[in-house]
Design a protein around this nucleic acid. Structure first.
Lengths: 144, 144
DNA sequence: CCCGTTAGTCCGAGTTTCGGACGAACATAG
DNA sequence: CTATGTTCGTCCGAAACTCGGACTAACGGG
């Protein structure tokens, strides 16, 4: 289970790197968890199982590289909403086709029916193993 | 795909910790890759996608904690074979039931048939995504 | 208005990870 | 047997990662 996942991850990372986006693995993992509407730092930290400081530093890097922005949260003056900057959307636009391509390869090997089975089974498992059900997104490294 | 995996991993780690074995995540990951007959450092490094030095330091820790031993490889005087020490076997004996238990939970949710499907599909995928299973087709991953 | 809680940041220390260089042991060719 | 190139593992030093603790600012209920 871990192996195909890592394969997908590597494929995406390689593609990004090939296009000049030099981004670390943990940065990518955090980035992938950012909600399109914006996420709070604590949310990201909890979802990624990392401390707030760690995620804070990672977001710093992403921000410095221009991938995300930190806007004040209109609903809570303490919080700062991490949102995806235009340059960050590039990352998504770049990784989406890679994800689709790899998935296509997989489907070619499994056949359509078994692929659907696999997908639905994994989503089923996710329901009982993921404490934080994330709404569906199209982001790097998010293999269902 | 990643989420159930991490769930399983966390379950095992928690169980080990509960029994007094305080072992880090990366240590566990390397440990899990040790062949019963013994593995070379380079093998472990390659499989774990880490540098030799890194794995070396991890094995150091495992060795200091008494989980593994480093015996000279009878077939190659340069190499040292990392083997599982008695205390290390404890780890395995401890985690096996946990793995089985979690899998049982999953099977309870999916049903027997879908579980078998899932298992076989994942193994199928592994064939084309694991760089160390069989040399086949496109592998953008492998550096060096 | 007060007080407990929450969001995020700063600081400092401990750990992890790696690139580069190294000696030792193999493997092959001459 | 020697020469050359490769592989195995280790040492060294620097860069990075990660976290606990302490802190400010803001929320929310009483």
């Amino acid at each position: 289970m871990f192996i195909p996942y890592r394969f997908m991850e590597s494929a995406v990372m390689a593609a990004l790197k090939a296009h000049g986006h030099d981004i670390g693995l943990n940065q990518a993992r955090v980035f992938a968890r950012i909600n399109p509407e914006g996420s709070r730092l604590s949310e990201l930290a909890e979802a990624a199982q990392l401390s707030k400081q760690t995620v804070g530093s990672i977001v710093d890097q992403l921000e410095r590289a221009g991938y995300v922005r930190r806007d004040p949260d209109p609903e809570d003056a303490r919080a700062r909403l991490v949102t995806i900057a235009p340059r960050g959307r590039e990352l998504i636009d770049l990784s989406s086709p890679v994800v689709r391509e790899v998935e296509a390869t997989w489907e070619a090997h499994l056949g359509r029916a078994r692929t659907r089975q696999l997908r639905s089974s994994l989503q089923e498992l996710r329901l009982i193993t993921d404490p934080f059900a994330l709404p569906t997104t199209t982001s790097p490294s998010t293999t269902s």
